[in-house]
Design a protein around this nucleic acid. Sequence first.
DNA 1: CAGATAAACGGAGGCGCCTCCGTTTAAACT
DNA 2: AGTTTAAACGGAGGCGCCTCCGTTTATCTG
Lengths: 197, 197
Amino acid sequence: MASAEPKTTSPASTKLRADARRNRDRLIEVAAAAFAENGVETSLEDIARQACVGIGTLYRHFPSREHLVEVVYRRELESLATAATELAQKHSPDVALEEWMRRFVGYIATKRGMANSLRILMTSNSSLFSEGSGLIRGALESLLKTAGDKGCIRSDIETSDLLHALSSIYSIPESPEWRERSHRLIGLLMDGLRTRR
Amino acid sequence: MASAEPKTTSPASTKLRADARRNRDRLIEVAAAAFAENGVETSLEDIARQACVGIGTLYRHFPSREHLVEVVYRRELESLATAATELAQKHSPDVALEEWMRRFVGYIATKRGMANSLRILMTSNSSLFSEGSGLIRGALESLLKTAGDKGCIRSDIETSDLLHALSSIYSIPESPEWRERSHRLIGLLMDGLRTRR
DNA sequence: CAGATAAACGGAGGCGCCTCCGTTTAAACT
DNA sequence: AGTTTAAACGGAGGCGCCTCCGTTTATCTG
């Protein structure tokens, strides 16, 4: 049984005509870049233009700005979760954990600008929020478990506590040295987590 | 110097040219009606048109939709608070209290449609929220105290408890008999409040 | 491969947002 | 009353949102 179910994002794998799927994917791609660059207020017509489709096509695939934002947001969360697995394969457990935390914090920082729109989205569609945080928690939990089992870090750490610690890192105010600072803080956190030898 | 500070709404009493003040007032009037009728999403150009001013004038007075909504909202809260005093003068304390609660519940119900916009407003401008609830609480408290002092109702009632009771009334779902039902519930509440003789 | 057809496309058009700036006017001064 | 001037007006214009529908095209069928 070589049932190679594509592990693509979400259950949007409903059969679409080839051109439709291409356009849809391209729109998501372009939108993700545009949102990252100019915030969620970016003109949808710009996005359509950059994706070389008519505005009508954009609206057929994503009936409202919120739909599009949601899809992009979901995709990014999923890729963040996926990254946990990949990192775990390529690096030692503690390095994987550290790198993943850096990415997580960086990702959240990206969302600063979106804060308002995302808040609306979250309150009006709470499944999005719960699924999203489930994914993240799962990823962190598994990294934590692996590293704990292998003896790289202490094994008495609660996922929730670590998430809380991270939240205090990503909520530090924006500034030029933001990234360095957050990396230093994560380093500090890691030092605390690593088992003494 | 006869400085007769007018006790009008808010500190918007900054000296304006006569025509400007007229237009501003008319805009607020029209906007209040329009929001009540069609929700806060009403076209601002419609509002300007109904007030017989150019759209430019509207925007000069209220730089964004939120500003306008806020002013209207504030004004309504203030008039609700004022109504408490007036009712207290014209009716017996218990009747005043009952009538005021009816108006309060009715007013909140009006705001159902605005929920989303108001929520945004509240979170981005929390002073609005705190001042607003302060006004309301103050009004209720004074009605309660008067009625308690005069022996019309029990005097062991906390304002917060009554507010809570009211919240359970105004959050009953929309329906044709909404008003009757809320009035019945307020009546019930009043029966509980009134002192036995 | 041709023909049929339903899926998908795309952009014109109508509407609302908001800004900008030339015109009007209240009111201060003489 | 006439002059001045800064405050206020108003609407044209540029842009983005979203819908609607005539046109194009992928895919299916013989």
